[in-house]
Amino acid sequence: MDPNWDDMRVFLAVAREESLSSAGRLLKIDPATVGRRVSRLELALKAPLFTKSPQGYVLTSAGERLFEHAQGAEEAMRAAAGAMEGATKSLSGQIRIGAPDGSANYLLPQVCAKISDSNPDLDIQILALPRIINLSRREADMAITVSAPTAGKLLVQKISDYKLHMVATADYLSRHGPIRSVNDVKGHRMIGYIPDMIFDRELDYLNDLGIDRVPLASNSVSVQLRQASLGTGVCIAHDFTLPFHPQLKKILTDQVSLTRSFHLVRHQGDQRNERLNRFADALSRGIRDEVARLEAEAQA
């Protein structure tokens, strides 16, 4: 009995999720069926592919060898489907983008809406998570990151630089006094990330400024900006978010001006996928244009 592609898909899901139930949710089949399909594949290959541990289903040495080949087959099939679809005028199907919540909330909605206008049969999903998206587990087709990853078989493309400044409301400053230097900031209530939940070194803005206490903290940029907009404290904000929060004014612009970059990260095996290539080009171009537009509006 030869293995079939459907069983390979189940195998890949279990290998990535390390759980029959999680793989079942991903594939929309019940866990018992997942278990039977894995057993059928092991029987066809005459080798055990997983061992059960307290952490879940772990690949055996035979499973690890199969995993490499199965990923290659998956990438080839995705590339073939992408080539056929990429040849058509408009894109269709589903594409999922993983992104930190700053870009997910303030850039991707309008960028993806424009792409959708040109591709009415395309379903675009934005996965906003306060952590690095795991592309190897196929959480998303591509991801926006702040740091360029250096490990794994990934395609990494710089999209755009963006600026950040310290901000507060006029009402907050009138009640708590002016801020003329970074040293003055230490006497004010800071808003920022939860220190032990900062998932990227590039986001540790306050520590770089010598500020070690964050009285109002959240793992979400949107929550931080909402708090600052209410006049409750001082925070670091992306310039491209400021048109959405007109109450916030930049302060200490001559002393605190940060630059970070967005990168587009994709599976290396998708570089021949014309459909994803076209979408990635449109996404990158849209983000660059939107950052430039919003930063110019914030400056004006």
Rank of each mutant, 00 (worst) to 15 (best):
A128Q: 11
E85G: 03
E75C: 00
R131G: 07
S92T: 05
I132Y: 06
Q125K: 12
F67W: 13
C112R: 08
I115Y: 05
L129Y: 14
V58D: 15
I133G: 01
D121A: 02
T88C: 02
Q125P: 00
D123C: 01
P54K: 03
A79W: 09
E68S: 13
A87E: 02
A62V: 04
A70D: 06
S53I: 11
S118K: 12
L91Q: 01
G56H: 12
A99D: 08
G86I: 01
S103H: 02
A80H: 05
L127I: 04
R78V: 10
D117Q: 08
P100Q: 03
I133V: 15
A76L: 11
A99E: 07
L91Y: 05
R96T: 15
R65K: 10
S90G: 04
E74Q: 02
M84S: 00
A99P: 08
K114C: 10
E74W: 08
Y57C: 13
E74A: 09
S61M: 11
P109F: 11
Y106A: 12
K114I: 06
C112G: 12
A87C: 01
S90V: 05
L107D: 07
L107C: 13
A87F: 06
D117C: 00
L127A: 14
Q55G: 12
A70Q: 07
R78I: 09
A80I: 07
N134W: 11
N105V: 12
G93L: 01
I132R: 12
Y57F: 15
R96P: 09
A76K: 13
T60Y: 14
R78Y: 14
S136M: 12
K114P: 07
P120I: 01
P109I: 09
A128L: 13
P120V: 00
D121L: 02
I133A: 13
S90I: 02
S61F: 10
N105C: 09
D101P: 04
G86H: 08
G82S: 01
P109Q: 10
L135G: 14
D101K: 05
A83R: 04
Y57H: 15
L91W: 01
M77P: 01
Q71K: 13
A80W: 03
I97N: 09
Y106E: 12
L129N: 03
G82K: 06
Q55H: 14
E74P: 00
A104H: 11
V111Y: 07
S61W: 04
M77D: 06
A79H: 08
L135D: 15
S116A: 15
G82H: 03
G82W: 01
D121Y: 02
S116Y: 08
S136I: 11
S61C: 05
S103Q: 04
Y106G: 04
P100V: 01
V58Q: 15
I124G: 04
L135K: 13
Y106I: 08
E74G: 00
Q110V: 14
L129W: 10
I115A: 06
I97V: 14
E85K: 05
I97G: 01
M77E: 13
T88K: 14
M77Y: 08
I95F: 07
S118N: 02
Q55T: 12
S116D: 09
M84G: 00
A99S: 15
K114F: 06
A87H: 08
L91R: 07
D117F: 00
K114D: 12
